[in-house]
Nucleic acid binder design. Sequence first.
DNA 1: GAATCTAAGATTGTTCAACAATCCTGGGGT
DNA 2: ACCCCAGGATTGTTGAACAATCTTAGATTC
Lengths: 229, 229
Amino acid sequence: MEIGGADMDTGTHGAAEHAHTTAWIASVLRNRIAAGELTPGSKLSEQSLSTSLGVSRNTLRQAFTILAGESVVTRIPNRGVFVASPGAEEVREIYRIRRTIEPAAVLWGELTPRTLDEMEAIVQRAQAARNAGSVTDMADANQALHRAVVGLTGSATLQELMDRVLAEMRLVFHAMASAPDFHSHYVERNVELVKRLRAGEREEAAAGLRAYLDAAEAELLGHLAGTGH
Amino acid sequence: MEIGGADMDTGTHGAAEHAHTTAWIASVLRNRIAAGELTPGSKLSEQSLSTSLGVSRNTLRQAFTILAGESVVTRIPNRGVFVASPGAEEVREIYRIRRTIEPAAVLWGELTPRTLDEMEAIVQRAQAARNAGSVTDMADANQALHRAVVGLTGSATLQELMDRVLAEMRLVFHAMASAPDFHSHYVERNVELVKRLRAGEREEAAAGLRAYLDAAEAELLGHLAGTGH
DNA sequence: GAATCTAAGATTGTTCAACAATCCTGGGGT
DNA sequence: ACCCCAGGATTGTTGAACAATCTTAGATTC
């Protein structure tokens, strides 16, 4: 868990690493948060982390500003940084974004046979995970599908935005103590979505996707109201 | 190219301002870049800027990471930071984003009489500016309209993304040495867009908007190929 | 003379140690 | 109970230092 304070720039990724240890630290924290090691709401002390990661407080600070820019972490002046703990309002914002971008990608994105094949592979992966009972694999496949949907736009910026949104979604799931099989309901919807895309029925696909997003948002908000106080 | 700086942080906001001088410095630089004082491609020297702005090199650095996150500035390792100079590829990316988000907002955004009034006021402002021959006012009004369009989604994140995109557009205009009246052609299209929105004809409005964006992108790319390089 | 190599010089990336400002905590004192 | 007020801890910022890299100009070689 902690990076033993003694060994630093040993073999793992070169000796110097002069250029971007800031980005390196940021990605380490990002991964720990995504993995659930750092639970939402917990405080990230500068002193503890700087010593435990073996970097100066100053560069850790820079990594914090990066993560704050990604809203992976929230910064409260003179109080410190905390890993983001999305609530109902954040969930609503997430779905505002998704309801805008994803159906637009379906309607106007560039559909090549190659990407269609990839999407079909993803939904098959989701079905296999559901049959095997692996919740995390199913969640991963679902997220991968929606990531691929946004990829239809061809825009790296939107893809990045979607990645951030999906990361925040993962935080939401982590925040909900129990993880009921939220995703199993939606595998069929995803299958149908890809089927419609394959058939070229974009309008129907977009409409179905919007309905899907509405339902998912409602269910998530319900769970949040139930468990989270 | 150089930041001839005699002005310091005198009285305007006191000596303390302890909480967020980093954000303050970032906004100062952001505004200077938006105003065209700092031309695209010019280098931002840490030493010059830190002394001229009266802050430490360390906090200036943090402001740089913020601006780099907004892609207002590009950072080349061990070379320094430069104000972003968008080229053809960046323009294409900008319009990939706009073609996705803006028509989606038109199709599925929340249309209240209040926002419709605001949009009509904006297009009237654009028409007045065109009649008065003020290019900058016309550009501002055009950007304000498209900002309002994205506002229909109700998403602060998308609004922020659009702000970044529009800022980058301003950089593109700054990069084109001569600023031909790029916007005058499109005032009528904007008028028609708002008219269709008022009439509730969303599909037609979205289709027209997409055609508008295609035309604007093509014209911009043409200008870039002509002047730049 | 042109191209290449090399040795300063300048600039960026990072660390360290200090201080100012703010927040948090725990006691008195009404 | 409530409020005020020290003390301690943490964050925000600064300045100086050093390592690594890039740049530049001079020297060397062909």
